[in-house]
Amino acid sequence: MRTFAFLEAPRFGEGVVAEKILESPFSKEIRICMDKGNIMREHAAPGPITVMVLEGCVTVTSGSDTADLLRGQIVCFDAHVPHSLEARTDSVVRLTLSKNDALARVIDLTKA
């Protein structure tokens, strides 16, 4: 058994930082640290995803729907559904991707 910590040593002051915390036989668990005001532009994943706020507040937008997710709240998207994220405060987000999705795709979204 191995344990992992999403909230250990978050990386703030660097914009948006995405890093793989663990990979299981069926998913990739990604930690995204977002400084207040940072945006992950509109994008869509090739498979279903879940986004959970572990710390802070993140505005999630998909089409005409917008929600402010607070600590402990989660949202899911089917494959190919466009969405964006904006950090209202310094925030730590847990992103669950399909095993077949690429961390490089997520990291590309963190670049301004």
Rank of each mutant, 00 (worst) to 15 (best):
N38Y: 08
N38V: 11
N38P: 02
N38G: 05
N38H: 12
I39P: 01
I39R: 09
I39Q: 06
E42H: 10
E42C: 08
H43E: 04
H43M: 00
H43N: 04
H43S: 04
A44W: 03
A44Y: 05
A44N: 07
A45N: 09
A45Y: 05
A45F: 04
A45V: 00
P46Y: 06
P46E: 11
P48S: 14
P48G: 15
I49W: 02
T50Q: 03
V51E: 02
V51N: 04
M52V: 10
M52W: 06
V53M: 03
V53F: 01
V53G: 01
V53P: 02
V53K: 03
E55K: 14
E55W: 03
C57H: 12
C57G: 11
C57E: 15
C57I: 14
V58M: 12
V58F: 12
V58S: 11
T59E: 15
T59C: 15
V60P: 07
V60K: 08
V60L: 14
G63Y: 10
G63F: 10
S64F: 11
D65L: 14
A67Q: 14
A67R: 14
A67K: 14
D68Y: 09
D68I: 09
L69R: 12
L70Q: 13
G72V: 05
G72F: 07
G72Q: 07
Q73N: 03
I74H: 12
V75G: 04
C76P: 01
F77N: 01
F77L: 05
D78N: 10
